[in-house]
């Protein structure tokens, strides 16, 4: 008696390289999910900051109102939003295949990101010079870690942009390069979103 295959035994659940799968959509959704998990990292830091933002945890050292300046923070907000907008406008130029437009957008984003980091590291250096370093108190540890975590994200974003500049010139707008550029756009916009939370939570409510 001939053996009968079970119904559906020959069916395949996934066809590698199937034309119906979109590499770009798959990559951007995957990166979006990664960014949501990254946002949870910041959520944990915000929770720690809320707990440690008390005079007792300042241990005789400075509290938020003595180290943050909401007006300077506002200029930082304008600069980081400008950087995000510059990159995003660059990707609009990409729609019509204009490499130069995208390259200028990325260069503008890098320049403004460096200005933003200059503000931030200047503030941290001034704090350290006044003895308010990361280990001075529980409150300052939370403050430094929150600001530095965001700054590290910004630095990696700048490095990523430099790599993409080289790939745009060498490889042009192939599927992989376009997917990476779209992921970088989300990553960069995410930095502005996190900064809005930092600005409101630390610079405004703290002031």
């Amino acid at each position: 008696m001939a053996e009968q295959a079970a119904p559906g035994a020959q069916a395949r659940l996934f066809y590698p390289g199937y034309a119906g799968h979109s590499q770009i959509s798959g990559r951007t959704l995957g990166f979006w999910l990664y960014m949501l998990s990254d946002a949870l990292l910041f959520t944990a830091l915000f929770a720690a900051y809320a707990v440690l933002d008390t005079p007792m945890n300042a241990a005789g050292g400075p509290v938020a109102s003595q180290i943050v300046n909401p007006i300077e923070g506002f200029w930082q907000t304008v600069v980081i939003l400008g950087s995000v907008t510059s990159y995003s406008l660059g990707t609009v130029a990409m729609k019509s295949g204009h490499r130069a437009g995208l390259v200028w957008g990325i260069l503008g984003a890098i320049l403004l990101a460096i200005v933003f980091l200059g503000f931030g590291f200047g503030d941290l250096a001034a704090l350290a010079a006044h003895g308010a370093g990361i280990s001075r108190s529980g409150y300052l540890s939370a403050y430094w870690v929150l600001i530095l975590t965001h700054a590290v994200h910004m630095v990696f974003g700048i490095l990523w942009m430099l790599v993409m500049l080289a790939q745009i010139v060498r490889l042009g707008f192939n599927e992989m390069v376009v997917a990476r550029l779209l992921n970088l756009r989300m990553f960069w916009q995410f930095q502005a979103t996190v900064w809005v939370c930092v600005y409101v939570y630390v610079y405004m409510i703290g002031a």
């Binding site: 770009i24 707008f173 192939n174």
Partner: peptide, 10 residues
């Protein structure tokens, strides 16, 4: 890739 909806949405 430049005609992908995620590129076109900007």
């Amino acid at each position: 890739p430049l005609t992908h909806p995620e590129v076109a949405q900007g």
